[in-house]
Computed example of a mutant assay.
Amino acid sequence: MPYYTSNEEHPIDILNIKGLEAKVKAHMDKGAFGYIREGAEDEWTMRENTRSFEDKHIVPRVLRGISHADLSTSIFGIPLKTPVIEAPSAAHGLAHMKGEVDTAIGAAKAGTLFAMSTYGSTKLEDAAAACPGAPQFFQIYMSKDDGFNEFLIRKAVKAGVKAIIMTVDSTLGGYREEDIATKFQFPLPMPNLAAYGAADGKGKNISEIYAAAKQDFVPSDVKKLKDMSGLPVIVKGIQSPEDAD
């Protein structure tokens, strides 16, 4: 049975994220929605991440003579209108036919930065071409195959990305209970994988896709990506002070 992905184009009223999630759930394939929404096992980490974020407080300053707040900032010398960026996530095509192209356009219109995932539903060069001049990063799941890593990095550099995000905390697929319950497998190909070889991710679950990923990361891998790209490399997934040191 072919997978149906939305091609609707119209404004939507967003009151809050919880309400938006409910609207999406009502119009999306159950398995695909579960993949996007869920965490691993009993979702303790996902809940704890949210709770921890809620512990962060903004200290209001008064008597500062400011009538209009300026949220602009910069990263690696790239000016942004907001300190909130679009983090990399896989397979936007599950939610809409235009996938990461529309996500990139939305981020550009908001004056912020889009980060493309290795496991996106769109070619990384197509996402870059959709909004010329807008800053983008590329997130790589390093493979055991260095030829694949070099291939992707070359494509990213050619597309004009400004930095490489190196994910090091996701070397294996988590025990995603909702995926197991719905028997979810990616119904759409991943063009960045398909551009290198026959394995395009279609018909596989996330654990099967991760099977080709590198697990034995060492600090020299950061330098390897730096040398390949000539760009800043952000190590995504450091969770302890010792690893940061």
Rank of each mutant, 00 (worst) to 15 (best):
G147P: 11
F148M: 12
T118D: 10
A90D: 14
F138S: 12
K162A: 05
A127F: 08
A159R: 00
F151P: 12
K158L: 09
I165W: 07
C131L: 00
I165H: 02
D126T: 07
S117Q: 10
A107C: 13
R176C: 00
H96T: 00
G133S: 01
Y141E: 13
P88G: 00
I85R: 02
M142G: 06
C131P: 01
V157N: 07
K109S: 11
Y119L: 15
T103K: 09
P135H: 00
R154A: 13
A91R: 14
Y119T: 13
I164K: 02
H92N: 15
A104F: 02
E150F: 03
D126N: 11
A91G: 04
D169Q: 04
G120H: 04
K98Y: 06
F114V: 00
Y119K: 08
L172N: 08
G99V: 07
A115F: 01
A95L: 15
R176S: 01
D179T: 05
H96E: 05
V168A: 01
F151S: 13
K183W: 06
G93T: 08
M142S: 13
T171L: 03
A127L: 09
A115D: 03
K123S: 14
A156T: 12
G173F: 01
P132Q: 04
D169H: 07
G160C: 04
D146K: 14
R154W: 06
M166W: 02
I165T: 15
T118C: 10
G160P: 05
C131A: 15
S121P: 10
